[in-house]
């Protein structure tokens, strides 16, 4: 598939700067390691947060970190899309007989995020053993659904952020509220927040669909709605559809305004 050929190209380029690669990778490992340490220290003082145990919060955190790290690996092109517009790289993309989404995805593959990914997997593994859930095949599948769903949702947000660049190249930092900010918020079960925050991050940007709701199922809080909660991550995946639609609008806008 053409995407992997693009990625191979990025990796080849990457290998030209090996020292930088290793340093970023190690750095990324510690970034998420310290975030995790923060949670650990908090639980060293408090036994639980709004009824959630350390293991459960750690799992939630691990899922979000994993999904975010995978997204940053694959969809980094959308994260730095502003430069594409500024430098005219998007013109080049428009001149190729391939989908714009695919080309932007393929333009960048953030290999150094593997450091973060490694750390996230460690967290996930530990958290899964700390919390007292009776793990079975269904729950394992749900866990995979959660990560996949998270990747789609974060990718959607990255695409939305990139789409804004078609309309203005100024002041785009606000999108970080939803990427970095969203990652922080979604690291905890949403019940610990105010109702409106919970609603916003369930129905508008469906973070709840890939961590909080299925977490209810994993921890035996589903109360008879097991199947529903188990499948909510799949609903979260649908978030990508409107994002792609908005992207298409952005491309049309670019067609008529140029850069």
């Amino acid at each position: 598939m053409i995407y992997f050929k693009y990625v191979r190209m990025v990796i080849k380029s990457f290998m030209q700067y090996r020292a930088s690669f290793w340093l970023t990778m190690i750095g990324q490992f510690f970034v998420s390691f310290f975030a995790f340490l923060g949670i650990y220290l908090m639980f060293a003082r408090f036994d639980n947060i709004a009824g959630w145990s350390f293991g459960e919060v750690a799992l939630c955190f691990g899922v979000v970190q994993t999904a975010f790290a995978v997204t940053e690996c694959f969809a980094r092109g959308f994260d730095i899309f502003r430069d594409f517009i500024k430098q005219g790289t998007f013109d080049r993309i428009m001149l190729r007989p391939r989908s714009t989404i695919l080309q932007v995805l393929g333009s960048n593959f953030e290999l150094s995020r593997i450091g973060r990914l490694a750390q996230s997997f460690v967290t996930l593994g530990l958290a899964a053993s700390w919390m007292d859930a009776d793990w079975n095949a269904m729950k394992a599948v749900t866990l995979i659904f959660m990560i996949v769903s998270g990747v789609f949702i974060f990718t959607g947000i990255f695409i939305l952020g990139a789409t804004v660049c078609f309309f203005t190249v100024e002041g785009l930092e606000f999108i970080n509220i939803f990427t970095d900010g969203g990652r922080e918020i979604a690291s905890y079960p949403l019940t610990i927040y105010a109702k409106w925050i919970m609603r916003f991050f369930t129905f508008i940007i469906p973070f709840g669909c890939f961590n909080y709701l299925p977490l209810m199922y994993l921890t035996g809080r589903a109360e008879g709605r097991e199947l529903l909660y188990m499948l909510t991550p799949l609903a979260g995946i649908l978030f990508i559809a409107p994002c792609l639609g908005v992207w298409r609008l952005g491309v049309r806008r670019y067609l008529s305004t140029g850069n």
């Binding site: 190209m9 080849k12 380029s13």
Partner: peptide
């Protein structure tokens, strides 16, 4: 061809860029 901009990949041999274009087209 935009004289001021490149369509090739900066850090890889030109032949590799050509190969990717083969796949793109």
């Amino acid at each position: 061809v935009f004289g001021q901009r490149t369509q090739l990949w900066w850090d890889v041999p030109i032949a590799d860029s050509f190969d990717l274009l083969r796949d793109i087209y």
